[in-house]
């Protein structure tokens, strides 16, 4: 693998990481902790929304984030022929 390709590959990876970890931070620390009181004024059936994020929503999003990362990286590996 060429040095320049290595750099590009790593840069794209870092870009994915930044985006996914930002979402990770928002759903847990943002919706579940910092803005929990504001979100609790909104209701979703029997749940207050902030409470739901803290005890349910954040966990679902975490799982989805990992699977999105797996997909993105598998595609990226393929693009640079690193999927052997």
């Amino acid at each position: 693998m060429k040095k320049s390709d290595q750099k590009k590959y790593w840069k794209t990876n870092l870009k994915y990481l930044t985006v996914l970890l930002t979402i990770w931070f928002i759903v847990s620390y943002g919706c579940g902790i910092i803005f929990v009181d504001e979100l609790n004024t909104i209701r979703m059936g029997g749940f207050k929304l902030g409470f739901w994020f803290a005890q349910q929503g954040s966990i679902y999003v975490f799982t989805i984030l990992i699977f999105v990362y797996i997909r993105l990286m598998n595609k990226l590996d393929k693009k640079y022929n690193l999927d052997s």
Binding site: L17, L20, L21, W24, S28, G32, I33, V36, F51, A54, Q55, S58, I59, F62, T63, L65, I66, Y69, I70
Partner: peptide, 21 residues
């Protein structure tokens, strides 16, 4: 109650760090 959320988020959110970092 709500305070127990620290375990729920804490013990699952770590897997995102594991998988990504």
């Amino acid at each position: 109650g709500y305070d127990g959320s620290v375990y729920l988020m804490g013990w699952t959110g770590g897997y995102v760090l594991l998988a990504l970092l």
